[in-house]
């Protein structure tokens, strides 16, 4: 009985903290995306560079982030996993993480004109159902920043 109460309290507390953290994170992501709207253009596929303009520098830029899923979201995902379907609680965490990683990459290359061939690499550090702790995802975004003369 006591164990059930502890689980219920943890669920309620982590539901509140998790949604507050997520809301604030989305707010900051949106603000920073708007601030960067006229800064380096990001492309995901271009591999060759054909332009007459002189290039001053070419460099590899990266952005990394580790986001924790949280007890409540992991609990909901585990339940939903039994029945199948979309795991919306995990989707939002991955979406936040990827956008954050791309933003960090762009903020590092603030003076550049283009970032081309952006790649995103994701790994879940603890799988769902792992006993040790709740899952976290580690994300590295990388791209080539090109600055004109």
């Amino acid at each position: 009985m006591e164990e059930l109460i502890i689980i219920a309290v943890t669920l309620i507390v982590t539901y509140i903290t998790g949604s507050v953290i997520e809301k604030n994170h989305y707010k900051s992501i949106k603000q920073r995306e708007i601030a960067l709207i006229r800064k380096p253009i990001v492309s995901y596929g271009i591999k060759e560079w054909n332009s007459k303009r002189k290039i001053r520098s070419v460099e590899l830029v990266t952005g990394e982030v580790v986001v924790g899923v949280g007890y409540f979201k992991a609990f909901v995902a585990n339940l939903k996993n039994l029945f199948g379907g979309r795991l919306t609680s995990i989707e939002s965490v991955l979406d936040r993480g990827r956008r954050e990683a791309i933003l960090r990459m762009r903020e590092k290359a603030i003076g550049a004109n283009f970032i081309i061939n952006t790649r995103i690499d994701t790994v879940m550090l603890n799988d769902l159902g792992g006993k040790s702790s709740d899952p976290q995802c580690a994300i590295i975004a990388s791209g080539t920043a090109i600055t004109y003369e």
Binding site: V66, V67, K73, Q136
Partner: peptide
């Protein structure tokens, strides 16, 4: 921190 969620 991971229990509550958010960036680590």
């Amino acid at each position: 921190k991971n229990t509550f969620g958010g960036e680590l």
